[in-house]
Design a protein around this nucleic acid. Structure first.
Length: 428
RNA sequence: GGAGGGGUGGCAGAGCGGUUGAAUGCGGCGGUCUCGAAAACCGUUUCAGGCCUGAUUGGUCUGACGAGGGUUCGAAUCCCUCCCCCUCCGCCA
């Protein structure tokens, strides 16, 4: 959520920044400013009357304690009470309108976010492998280890059983990455994946991506599409000690996505499925630190891809493609031989103060409750460390040999991964 | 799932319709004392918002005792709904 004060003080700058997103948001600002004015006017009136009410209520109390009856005063105060209520209701109504409008505004894009309409290529690392044979796709290479048929039978399309060596590969990837992240100051976290609406609202997924989210209406819970939701909410409503920032977490969880509207896209294999596991980085930092933290997170993602020996490129996502909460986003895209193109494997966003403000997370200068240091809103960032399914896809396809055997990165072997995957026997 | 008990300031813990933003203790911060420290003593100790000024200071008012409604001239105190925590029983990985 944007800072209301900032919109008030410099609406033109906010309009200009939002205009980069290419949406008709200017009208929303006008509407918002008018609701704000109505709210402030009603609030001022209500508070002035309430002050009077308070003073006279004390008089009345004093009279009562002298056992005096004061029927006229009482009548006057009933009148006053009604007026206060009336203005308070006006204020509440205007505030609700205002809050609704503010909540729908997306974050202001960072000046260095790509203008678009195309993403901006930042760099390309590694060379796509050149095969002297026709490369297979991940599903052919995995054979019975990716069991789509039984998955579909059980749960529908876009669900898979992962079996055998691929399970060991997954666990190795997760263990390897969590250990790496721990060494970089990220606390490993396994969060709940069922959350209340507030957490989705607070992270900006609602209102915005409702069609992507599984809901359990009977329990008023939602399945998260990323542990980002739970990690951001870890400090919901808290005031963080500035001395203890940055705070970094590495969440490991299953992720659930409806993929409504993705019909026909990526229908083969496990590139796009309804359920996958992911290790996600999440940081809370002081506002001035967030651009550096963003680069840091990107560097970690690159380090991971590099050590997995995957050819990849980095793109700066076009402003028009940013989600509501991101001010700037990088994607790391790995080369997929079967598709002969780069596809998104990881992604990292600087959401600046957007999520923190929605979640009521603040930070305070130095210790000493009496120091009177004002609070400010910290910045939050998130980035994929490993999206397991897609990483497996990339490892299979890039590590394949002519005989269908797949060589896996050595770094994973100490963590329990097989050194290579045997050619697939037909699925049972 | 059933039956009870609770949620008050950084923590502990009073208050249970009127001047209580909130006693008391602990902690924290500043000071006195001291070569220094401890102890003792003195002072201090929340957050958000509106308005007026000023424009990194100030003045004033309002709100906040889990959250949201209600009753009342007036609510931390009474009523309702929700959330959370605890205890016992049941169930269970």
């Amino acid at each position: 959520m944007l800072d209301l004060k900032r919109i008030r003080e410099d609406p033109d700058a906010v309009r200009a920044a939002l205009a980069r997103r290419g949406e008709g948001l200017s009208g929303a600002i006008d509407e918002l400013l008018s609701a704000d004015e109505q709210w402030r006017a009603a609030t001022t009136s209500a508070e002035r009357l309430r002050a009077e009410q308070k003073a006279r209520s004390e008089e009345f109390g004093a009279a009562k304690s002298r056992a005096e009856d004061a029927p006229e005063l009482r009548a006057a105060m009933q009148e006053l009470s009604g007026q206060v209520k009336q203005f308070a209701e006006q204020a509440t109504a205007a505030k609700e309108r205002l809050d609704g409008l503010v909540a729908r505004l997306p974050n202001l894009p960072d000046p260095s976010a790509a203008d678009g309409p195309e993403d901006e290529l930042v760099k390309t690392v590694g060379d796509p492998p050149s095969f002297s044979f026709q490369p297979r796709d991940h599903l052919e290479l995995a054979g019975q280890m990716i069991d789509m048929d039984h998955g579909a039978n059980l749960s529908g399309s876009r669900f898979a059983y992962l079996r055998g060596d691929l399970v060991m590969l997954e666990l190795a990837l997760v263990g390897w990455v969590l250990q790496k992240l721990r060494g970089k100051g990220f606390e490993p976290v396994i969060p709940p994946v069922l959350v209340r609406e507030r957490a989705l609202y607070g992270t900006g997924f609602l209102p915005d991506t409702e069609q992507q989210i599984y809901a359990l209406p009977q329990d008023e819970l939602f399945l998260v599409g990323t542990s980002e939701v739970a990690l951001a909410s870890l400090h919901d409503g808290e005031i963080l000690d500035a001395a203890k920032l940055p705070r970094r977490y590495a969440g490991f969880s299953p992720c659930f996505r409806r993929e409504a509207g993705a019909a026909g896209k990526d229908t083969r294999g496990i590139f796009r499925v309804h359920q996958f596991e992911k290790v996600e980085m999440f940081s809370f930092v002081a506002p001035q630190e967030s651009p550096a933290e963003h680069e840091r997170i990107l560097a970690i993602e690159e380090e991971i891809l590099g050590e997995l020996a995957l050819p990849y490129r980095v793109v700066n996502i076009a402003v028009s493609d940013l989600g509501n909460s991101a001010a700037k986003k990088y994607d790391c895209e790995a080369w997929l031989p079967s598709q002969k193109r780069y596809r998104e494997l990881t992604s990292c966003s600087n959401t600046t103060d957007y999520q923190a403000r929605r979640l009521g997370i603040r930070m305070r200068g130095d210790g000493g409750s009496g120091s009177g240091k004002a609070t400010q809103t910290p910045h939050t960032l998130n980035g994929t460390a490993v999206a397991v399914g897609r990483t497996i896809v990339a490892l299979l396809e890039n590590g394949q040999q002519e005989d269908g055997i797949v060589e896996l990165p050595e770094v994973l072997v100490p963590h329990g991964a097989p050194a290579r995957l045997a050619p697939a026997a037909p699925a049972a």
